[in-house]
Design a protein around this nucleic acid. Structure first.
Lengths: 238, 238
DNA sequence: ACAATAGTGTCTGTTAGACACTATGCC
DNA sequence: GGCATAGTGTCTAACAGACACTATTGT
């Protein structure tokens, strides 16, 4: 046991967790960046993904690290937090050398992000991203790709909505995420499937606040679900 | 720089890569297990996933670690190797304490697996898996889930076929992976899409070796593609 | 010729896309 | 009533599933 412990320490790795915190702003995906403030650390002064070392004395797992990073660096708790991928190697951080980064993807409404003014965040449009240190641009692209893909078969993008949202609002979010217009009537059918699948629930009676035109029914993510999939029977399997 | 390096070493983590090596045997998914031979290490004597420490002096990234693990512990190079997920925490390996495991999923044909008799491997049916140490059972389940899901929209399961395969063979593989019978004529349509998408290519002229009945056309995975997706226009986005 | 399996053609039910129509709120 | 937006009904085209039919090999 001791010997194996000693042996295992020979090739210890610098492990960090970075979080791609996405939100929707004026119909486009934006990523939250924080300024690196420790002048002893690499990329000092640059705007980068919020991240931090894994603290094995403190964190239950890497998800807990991601939650801590969000709390400390973005001042919020994200309703959606999903492991993305590992980025590793000697080149991604030339100063530190070989590092391993577990990337997470978080989705929040713009309101939630603006509510936590405790920490200075910069929202950068993912379409025109530049100047990010390390391989953070690639990490953001992986997150965007994930959201786009999942928007095809899950309720995941609903986490970009405020807690209570209407069907047309969610439709707009799906269009923004996918970057192309889509049919509202078809979306309505899918929406009904989402409800049947337990991913979304109606808030009985609750209608949208006074607005131009007919107020819409309000819905929310079913708290018992997490990114519920819409099972699609037809696929490549014939 | 030095100070940050020192700081980063405070919470160094034991990092390993485990590989879920899947193959199809008599129509069912099986995972390759190796016996743990180091009596100083945890779970000595048990059959477990092939795995190993990340060697930052040697491995270009965790993918390289996975390739090395496959080479050393299974004596083969897998045509399909994909990062799965990170499993971490203090409980998964009680002897070593807090560990971080990057899990990979590899797919090979049964022929390739039997060809590398250099190392003693045990093939265990994923349906009746038991006795695995650590959280290896959960890791295998994640891999199986991934293959099942991807079989709905990608050519990934084709890597379970030998290098040259026929359409009916691939159809059988899809049915095995998904665990349910499916329509051959519909599969043929999807197959044509896979070819158009560049995931699979015909081997002109090459027909199946003498067999009962009409010999089938041979195909292979397009070497330029890697798990090509079949884009499906219709989805939740309406 | 026959057995066996590969591959095609065609019918049918389901579903996505389109769009006209109705409903319900505010002014 | 007029306007704006929510929500419904219905037609159509595309596609998955089913299955009968044809094609091509070995014996």
């Amino acid at each position: 046991m001791n010997s194996s412990n000693t042996k295992s320490r020979i090739n210890d790795i610098t492990c960090v967790v970075d979080v791609v915190l996405l939100t929707l702003k004026v119909g486009e995906l934006h990523v939250a960046l924080v300024q690196r403030t420790n002048e002893n650390e690499p990329a000092f002064g640059l705007w980068a993904l919020p991240g931090g070392f894994i603290r094995n004395a403190e964190d239950e797992d890497t998800l807990a690290t991601a939650e801590r990073v969000l709390r400390d660096k973005a001042g919020l708790q994200s309703p959606y937090l999903e492991q993305l991928s590992v980025f590793s190697g000697p080149a991604r951080d030339p100063d530190r050398g070989w590092t391993l980064c577990v990337a997470y993807c978080a989705l929040v409404s713009e309101g939630l992000l603006n509510g936590s003014k405790a920490v200075p965040l910069k929202l950068a449009n993912v379409r025109t991203l530049r100047g990010l240190p390390f391989d953070h641009k690639a990490i953001v692209e992986a997150a965007v790709e994930r959201v786009r893909t999942k928007s095809g078969y899950s309720t995941m993008p609903a986490y970009l909505c405020p807690e209570e949202f209407t069907l047309p609002q969610l439709h707009a979010v799906y269009q923004s995420v996918r970057g192309s217009p889509s049919n509202l009537a078809s979306f309505r059918r899918k929406f009904i499937e989402m409800i049947k699948a337990g991913g979304i629930e109606e808030m009985p009676g609750a209608k949208q606040k006074p607005t131009l035109g007919k107020p819409a029914q309000l819905y929310r993510i079913n708290p018992k679900s997490f990114g519920t999939l819409i099972t699609r029977d037809r696929g490549v399997a014939g």
